[in-house]
Design a protein around this nucleic acid. Sequence first.
DNA 1: CGCGACGTTGATTTGCCTCAACGATTGTGG
DNA 2: CCACAATCGTTGAGGCAAATCAACGTCGCG
Lengths: 192, 192
Amino acid sequence: MITTLATYVRNYIDISDEEMQLFYKYLRVKKLKKKEYLLTEGRTCQARYFIIKGCLRSFYIDEKGVERILDFGIDKWWFTNYNSLITQNPSENFIQAIENSELLELHNDCFEELLLKLPKIERFFRVIMEKTHIAYLNRIKYTRSFTGEKLYKDFIHSNPVFAQRVPQYMIASYLDLSPEFVSKVRAKDAIK
Amino acid sequence: MITTLATYVRNYIDISDEEMQLFYKYLRVKKLKKKEYLLTEGRTCQARYFIIKGCLRSFYIDEKGVERILDFGIDKWWFTNYNSLITQNPSENFIQAIENSELLELHNDCFEELLLKLPKIERFFRVIMEKTHIAYLNRIKYTRSFTGEKLYKDFIHSNPVFAQRVPQYMIASYLDLSPEFVSKVRAKDAIK
DNA sequence: CGCGACGTTGATTTGCCTCAACGATTGTGG
DNA sequence: CCACAATCGTTGAGGCAAATCAACGTCGCG
């Protein structure tokens, strides 16, 4: 559990076992059952979460009452609502478990203290933030450039894990496609 | 010039005049004429830029040979190609001046050294990165939710500055709309 | 077993693009 | 300083990708 995180952190910074122990003091384990919410609309996000195991989705409800998925999180990803966490404004989004999940919670109250005690963590979170941002840049670029059919096929191809663990209509929502359309794309190739 | 940057930095961290002087040692002034490139496809981005005055755009060329604008930068914004800068892969994008512009260049070679000498800058760039990321999150969400007509009207309404300084077809490209479509939206309202 | 969650299929509609042709404005070199 | 070329914006006709609406099939689970 702690080793899962340590391995992850060491992709980005050098950190000793002792320092990791200190880091770990600021975390608490949080378990979520399938469909349980980590954050709901109107509440303010107060923590960053490291997903040890499981699968989450972040979504909002549009004017027509339709759920629109913004993002998925899966094993060994950091997940939060950055907007609400950083601005401390009420969240417009929900975060919900797609599977039973096990997380490490880094509460915002002790985030600053952690940075003081362990300044190299500042760098870690800057780098994480940069990586996350780059992923979004690529996503914007990608989504704009291609047809729905290509988006879906490429997504399935490059994220076979999600195709297995996430229902089809959620992938459609994430890609901003209707479930019917995705269904037709699949039918067309008389897949498999 | 330096005061423009100092004012900006002080929105995010406390920093003394002496420290700002130190920061400033790592920067050099760079001037761009209208249409001049700051970065071209295939080259690797080596710096972060603070726009003192002027207007930039970042774009790529899609498979059909069409320019697609990813982002604009304007006075008092940091601008770079984060993807190329951080991964040190060749850029897929161009960065070009829309107006004559004056920038401060923070070269990547001395970035690490600056962070060592002035650790609080690490925090500054983490926070900037977070803000930038949040802006993108909102943009993704927004772009997905609305029709082209609403996107354009809202953009013009919330960014009147751009409407004045940036040609209409570039705004269309940024919003992922055809110039013809934008033109028709404007005509429809017999605007003004 | 029955119900809710998920996926499929077909008919119809629509938002926006593409293509093409044509003004208006700007700017630049002879 | 004028002429001609870019650059930028407009207008209209036609087409298409994907949404919407509606109805039905199927599976898993309490």
